[in-house]
Design a protein around this nucleic acid. Structure first.
Lengths: 224, 224
DNA sequence: ATCGACGTCATTGTTGACAATATTCCAATG
DNA sequence: CATTGGAATATTGTCAACAATGACGTCGAT
């Protein structure tokens, strides 16, 4: 009995499913107001429905989906004012983190960011949206983790996830993508040159285009 | 022995249990590193173990407890640096909210805050810790909800809950309590007189004493 | 044709049983 | 006496069956 049974089917961690669904929502593969059926998802990921329920609860607290008792879960539909409010908090938090980050940063932090940045740029060039999404996420996570306040970094991560719904509609835009890639390179540059003022400015400005793109897209669809 | 199923019309909502456990942690009835056994809690609240699991997951995302796979849940033990970091975020968020709040505020907001403040003061005088806890929570929630940014208000609420672990050790201190009551009255006053500068200042300063009390208490217990 | 009552189906919520994993305790060993 | 091995126990994790609820279409009456 010492030997564990060989697991034929790889044990799927709930957080893996959560991440996958976040990705689906962020990339617009599941759209706002679209319904998430527990059994469908259970089948798709090859797990029990309870695991899916747990995942859905997580997504709810993150703010990506809304659940109603006995009625199920749907992707949240963010109104322009929601997006404005979320981004107001993001600017506040991310600006603060940029103020706190150690300058000059530890060499390994810069090294990691450079590596991520390059892979992100390549993925963008190749049009691999999934990788672009993941590497962008990783870049920001790595950057803000360096601020020295894990609780602040968590909050930033949390609000970045909330904003993903808003980004789903404009995620494919090559212009936005190109600009994001360039700004990542600039952020690394400001880190290396210990240029606090520009770092803080860019950290805040960096997220604005995606907000504007969403508001613009919303206006276009529903009129002003 | 006797019966235990007194609740024919029960239907206990999970959030009620969550709130009760938050209270227990905040008031120090359950201490850091103490274990939370699912079946015990299920028995205590007269619900199925699954409900408790759900509650524990919520408490985990709030940050009040830590869970390890197959090992169960314990109340989180906040190190001084955690408390410092959490309060840094609180000051940032609550300061911002105070800047955003509409001045002069709507009359009904002031009326509600006054009512809560008076009941809070009475509870403090009577030494009813449970009511003090609840009314203090309600006061802050009502105040920050008035900032006009629900996402910001949520984040504030979230971090206030995280901080509750830290407050559990000093919650009984009459000096702190007296000061909190007075400052609530002052906050209402600054609202009525539309005194933005003082309002922002006090909103930030108001939470500092409980942070300092925790750090002090920690030093005393483990030496400096 | 419109509306509402009603029955059926789809979906979520709840429960108890069982499996997997950690913890505790005790005895055997060096 | 400390340590290790391994049952016995305690606790959490997973599952499948069942109950409750809401969504939807059908049918009859006006």
């Amino acid at each position: 009995m010492a030997v564990a049974k060989a697991k034929v089917t790889a044990a799927i961690d709930p957080s893996v499913i959560t991440n996958k669904l976040e990705e689906d929502i962020a990339l617009g593969r599941i759209l706002p107001r679209e319904r998430l059926i527990e059994e469908e998802l259970a089948l798709r990921f090859g797990v029990n429905r309870h695991v899916i329920r747990q995942v859905l609860m997580e997504l709810e607290t993150i703010g990506l989906i809304a659940r109603q008792k006995n009625k199920g879960a749907t992707v949240r539909d963010l109104l322009p004012e929601d997006v404005t409010n979320i981004y107001a908090v993001r600017e506040l938090l991310e600006g603060k983190a940029a103020e706190l980050i150690e300058l000059p940063p530890k060499p390994e932090v810069v090294a990691r960011l450079k590596d991520i940045q390059e892979r992100h740029a390549k993925a963008a060039e190749a049009g691999e949206l999934t990788n672009v999404f993941r590497l962008n996420l990783l870049f920001h996570k790595t950057f803000f983790a360096a601020c020295g306040n894990p609780h602040l970094a968590d909050a930033i991560q949390h609000f970045a996830l909330k904003a993903h719904i808003a980004r789903s509609l404009t995620v494919g835009d090559p212009k936005l993508l190109k600009r994001a890639v360039e700004e990542h390179a600039q952020i690394v540059h400001y880190l290396e040159t210990a240029d606090r003022a520009n770092l803080v400015r860019l950290a805040v400005e960096h997220i604005i285009p995606s907000k504007d793109a969403y508001l613009e897209s919303y206006r276009r669809r529903f009129g002003m």
